[in-house]
Design a protein around this nucleic acid. Structure first.
Lengths: 349, 349
DNA sequence: GTATTTAACTAAATCGTTTTCGTAAATTAT
DNA sequence: ATAATTTACGAAAACGATTTAGTTAAATAC
């Protein structure tokens, strides 16, 4: 029973058909007290028959809000980030919000453009995880200058005045390194992320502190930088080979993400180096595949879904606070991580 | 140099400041010929100073379009689907469109609600990949009834009158099975997807046809059904074990997705069954992890990114055709797949 | 029977932009 | 000098919904 190719009904059409004014129709639908029951019934019936749906564009214009938020993420095809997206989208939907998604492709230029796009689209708020090479924050400050809610997650900039949802990268890295030390490693290397990325920095600092706290020497030449881009696997292979050449007595590596770690494992497997007996490995992020490779990878579980939900909740709170003219408090929410011990490290359980 | 907490400038504000009408301001900005150069300069300068950006809500209302499309996908955290999303988002952005993303979670009910949501949001078009259990298409027909562009991809319904972007599942499955046969397999099992899903059906049919074309008997009891949900890995493990019990002479399996295949591989590894010598395995989708597990998995590469790009392009074409009042032609675009031969099957290269 | 209240409705403004149609004033043509 | 044209602007309607401030007519009060 479809009215094929019917263009959407408007209030005016209903009003004309019933010979009343659009104001009355609007009020009838919204159950105002100054409309008679008789009229309300007539309007509601006709609205249902004509399948009336209020025009979203008109509502947006009037209410100055679209119930839509923007999300900028460095890379969509990525287990952790797609989990975050899922968390954001599901939490948003539950609260009547839609999510526009954009991918910065780890490019600052693109990120900047996309912020502009979202601002000109007048989204109600913006969620962002920064590109690795973003070191200028004017585009973010522009969002803040427009008094538009902004929440950063995972890859944040400490200096930008807005709420942040993160994990304690430093502690997670510390714990991961400590686990290597506890399992007997004496010379531990680190494959780290890009110079500018805050979580790469924090993970590095956690690694370093764990060494020092355990009276192990920190050796700069044991730290390898990675781009963390599409070629992560290959980076893992290369760095593993290089590491063996430079330091053949390394007995543990803490690696900034699982894919690089798996590349390293693959390289060691090929060279018949026993994991974890000769070299133990800890990754980061708990990608799906870390459980299924051989040996399975000890890694830090990063709560992507929860991070997405939390980031949206915080943004939503700030949207509501602004509407109610309440003062905005910037919060830094730190989510728990935990180490998943698998076969790539030695342990007792 | 920021105007902190400045609310957006409107045409009227510029007009008032210059003591001219909003019409003139609007025309000046759009470079109409009936505005003097002097006025144009004044307007453009002030617009730049005040950082004027046209109000998107007003434009939407007037133009009856939002340059935004909706995307409904069964599951975001999934290598293939996230690649599709990436393709859609990047192609959309290139053409000035934004993408609202929703996840149906493989639920028909949710999918229905989300279609309503997108319709009431008045997106310019909808891209959808169906939930596994969707067998009623009224919600899709409603989109068509509103003359709103709709393009389905990957998980489609043959009966719905709209454009579709798919792979040739039947052929891909046929080729995969043929590869098993060519490499010497005589008794080939199939782990298939849900009853209703079109691509599960097509892959099954391709498998069956390859058997028959090669004069191998088709045995119903060699076909195992899978849900293809979060527990895919476990399903793979279970089905592999069951298969061994029922038919210990099976020498090949064609499996409807990589994660299930990896579950099966893991089960066989545990039982010390040699892959591919005793049992050869072909998966489907070419997930990232299939290259890194041991043995690496022979699988069908599904062009997710290309599918996303193509789906958006088709939708965009239909949006433009409608605006230009051209007739709409529904197309069925079939993208190529290819078999990636790895260590889980026997072959000569 | 007049004054007051209440019920039930509508006109008009508003949100911000675009565009059609008019209309003065300035310019050119005759 | 008058007519015709051009230039440069503005008023107003339109997109569709909401809401304030009226306005009738009926109901109640005194």
């Amino acid at each position: 029973m479809y009215l094929y190719f019917m263009k959407p009904t408007t209030l005016k059409e209903i009003a004309d058909k019933l010979n009343i004014s659009t104001s009355t129709v609007s009020k009838a639908l919204k159950n105002y007290p100054d409309v008679s029951k008789k009229t309300k019934d007539l309007v509601n019936d006709l609205a249902k028959t004509l399948n009336y749906k209020p025009n979203a564009f008109a509502l947006n214009l009037r209410n100055k809000e679209s119930k839509t938020i923007g999300l900028i993420i460095p890379e969509i095809v990525h287990h952790f980030f797609s989990s975050v997206i899922k968390g954001i989208v599901s939490e948003a939907e539950e609260n009547g919000y839609l999510v526009i998604i954009l991918q910065s492709n780890e490019s600052y230029e693109l990120e900047k453009k996309q912020i502009d796009l979202l601002l000109s689209q007048q989204v109600d708020g913006i969620l962002i995880s920064l590109a690795n090479n973003t070191d200028d924050f004017t585009h973010l400050n522009e969002v803040i200058a427009q008094d538009k809610p902004l929440v950063m997650f995972d890859k944040i900039a400490k200096l930008v005045r807005c709420s942040k949802v993160i994990i304690d990268d430093r502690k997670a890295a510390y714990d991961a390194t400590q686990h290597l030390i506890d399992s007997g490693c004496k010379k531990i290397a680190h494959f780290r992320g890009p110079h500018l990325a805050q979580n790469a920095i924090d993970r590095f600092l956690g690694y370093k502190k764990a060494l020092l706290d355990n009276h192990l020497p920190f050796d700069e030449s044991l730290v390898f930088f990675c781009q963390c881009d599409d070629d992560s696997f290959e980076e893992g292979v290369q760095n593993a080979q290089q590491l063996l050449k430079d330091h053949n007595d390394v007995d543990g590596i803490f690696i900034t993400n699982d894919l690089i770690a798996i590349g390293a494992i693959s390289a060691f497997n090929k060279l018949h180096i026993k994991i974890p007996e000769q070299i133990a490995i800890v990754g980061f992020s708990n990608w799906l595949m870390s459980a299924v490779i051989s040996p399975s990878l000890t890694t830090v579980d990063q709560p992507g879904f929860l991070m997405g939900k939390t980031a949206f909740k915080q943004l939503y709170k700030e949207i509501k606070d602004r509407k109610a003219n309440r003062p905005i408090l910037f919060e830094e929410i730190i989510l728990p991580t935990f180490l998943i011990k698998r076969a790539s490290t030695k342990h007792r359980d």
